[in-house]
C-alpha cells in the first residue's frame, strides 16, 4: 500500500519538475511545480467535445488507458514495500496490460478519421512493438540472475554486490530510462513540445481528446513516468536498508530521474524519424548484453 501511495505522490510532481528544469535551462521564468496538476484539475471540470466521425471506441479508450496504467501501479513494489498484486510472471501481465492501453489509444486515434492522428498512431504502434523485446530480455536477465519471476521477489533478491553485477545495474537502468522515454513518447524518440502535427507521435494521437478525457490521459502519463521511475529505484535501493531510507531514496531518485529527463529534453534534439527504429532496437541489444552478463555471473559462461 505504501508503494502505491508513494507512486501517486511522485506522479504529482514528476512532470512539474521536468518543465521546471527545462525552463531553468532555457533561462525562462519557471512555472510552479504544480502547474500540470492545476491544468489537469481545470480539464477535469470541463466537458469533452467529440467529433461526429468518432464512435464508442474513442470515448472508451481514455478510460481503458488510464485503467491499464492504474492497474500497472498495483504491481510495482518499492524496496521492501510489497506491491498490492503480485504473482509469478506478473511482469508479463504488466507489459501486456500497458499494451492493451496502447491498443485502445491507437484505434481511438484512427477513429477520428484524421490523417495526422493516423500517422501518430502508426508510429506509436511501431515504436512500442520495437521496444517490447528490450523489456522482456531485461526482465529475463533479472529472472535468470535471481531465480524469481515476480516483481516483488525479483527486487528483494537483487543484490548488486560484485563488480560484474554493477554492469547489470548500470545497463539495466540505462535501458529502463530509455524504455520509459519511448513508452512516454519523450525525447529522443518524440518531442512533446513540437508545434507541427507531422512531426509529433504521441501528442498528435490525442489531438481530438478534450476536457475530462484529456485529463485522464495526462494523469496516465504521469503515472507511467512514476512507474518506470519506481522500477529504476528498485535497481538501486537495497532491501536491507531501513524503511525511511528506502522512502527518502525513492523520492530522491524520482526527482533525479525527472531532472535527467528535463536535461535530456533541453539539450538533445529529437532523432530523425527514420532513425528511431534503429535507435529503439539498440535498446534490445543492450539488454542482450545484460543477459550475457547475467549468464556470466550465474557461471553458465565460464571465463578463465
Amino acid at each position: 500500500m505504501i508503494s502505491l501511495i508513494l507512486i501517486f505522490i511522485s506522479a504529482l510532481f514528476f512532470v512539474g519538475i521536468i518543465t521546471k528544469v527545462k525552463a531553468k535551462i532555457a533561462a525562462r521564468k519557471m512555472p510552479s511545480v504544480f502547474q500540470p496538476v492545476y491544468d489537469v484539475l481545470r480539464l477535469l471540470k470541463k466537458a469533452s467535445i467529440y467529433s461526429p466521425t468518432t464512435s464508442i471506441i474513442f470515448r472508451i479508450a481514455p478510460l481503458i488507458y488510464l485503467s491499464t496504467v492504474l492497474m500497472a501501479t498495483l504491481f510495482i513494489p518499492i524496496g521492501t514495500n510489497k506491491a498490492i498484486l503480485s504473482f509469478e510472471g506478473d511482469f508479463v501481465f504488466f507489459a501486456y496490460l500497458l499494451a492493451i492501453g496502447k491498443f485502445m489509444m491507437i484505434i481511438a486515434a484512427m477513429d477520428t478519421g484524421s490523417g495526422f492522428e493516423g500517422m501518430g498512431a502508426n508510429r506509436e504502434a511501431l515504436y512500442s512493438m520495437l521496444v517490447e523485446p528490450a523489456f522482456f530480455i531485461l526482465a529475463g536477465s533479472v529472472a535468470l540472475f535471481t531465480d524469481n519471476i515476480s516483481f516483488n521477489d525479483l527486487f528483494l533478491n537483487l543484490h548488486i554486490d560484485s563488480n560484474l553485477s554493477y554492469i547489470i545495474g548500470i545497463a539495466a537502468i540505462y535501458v529502463l530510462i530509455y524504455i520509459a522515454m519511448v513508452e512516454n513518447s519523450r525525447m529522443p524518440v518524440d518531442d512533446p513540445k513540437t508545434h507541427l502535427e507531422l512531426t509529433m507521435v504521441h501528442e498528435v494521437m490525442v489531438l481530438d481528446n478534450s476536457g475530462f478525457d484529456l485529463a485522464l490521459i495526462h494523469i496516465a502519463t504521469w503515472l507511467k513516468f512514476s512507474i518506470y521511475g519506481s522500477l529504476i529505484t528498485n535497481f538501486i535501493i537495497n532491501a536491507t536498508w531501513t524503511w525511511y531510507w528506502q522512502i527518502i531514496y525513492f523520492l530522491g531518485i524520482q526527482a533525479i530521474f525527472a531532472i535527467i529527463i528535463g536535461g535530456l529534453e533541453a539539450f538533445r534534439a529529437r532523432n530523425k524519424m527514420e532513425k528511431n527504429p534503429q535507435w529503439i532496437i539498440m535498446l534490445s541489444a543492450i539488454s542482450v548484453v545484460v543477459f550475457l552478463t547475467a549468464l556470466i555471473i550465474t557461471q553458465k559462461i565460464i571465463l578463465n
Binding site: 507489459a95 501486456y96 499494451a99 496502447k102 491498443f103 491507437i106 484505434i107 484512427m110 498512431a121 504502434a125 511501431l126 512500442s128 512493438m129 520495437l130 517490447e132 523485446p133 523489456f135 522482456f136 530480455i137 529475463g140 534490445s284
Partner: peptide, 16 residues
C-alpha cells in the same frame, strides 16, 4: 521470449 514479444507487438500493430 524475445521472438514471442516481437510477435505479440507485430500482432498488435497488424490488428490495430
Amino acid at each position: 521470449f524475445a521472438g514471442l514479444a516481437i510477435i505479440g507487438g507485430l500482432a498488435l500493430f497488424c490488428f490495430t
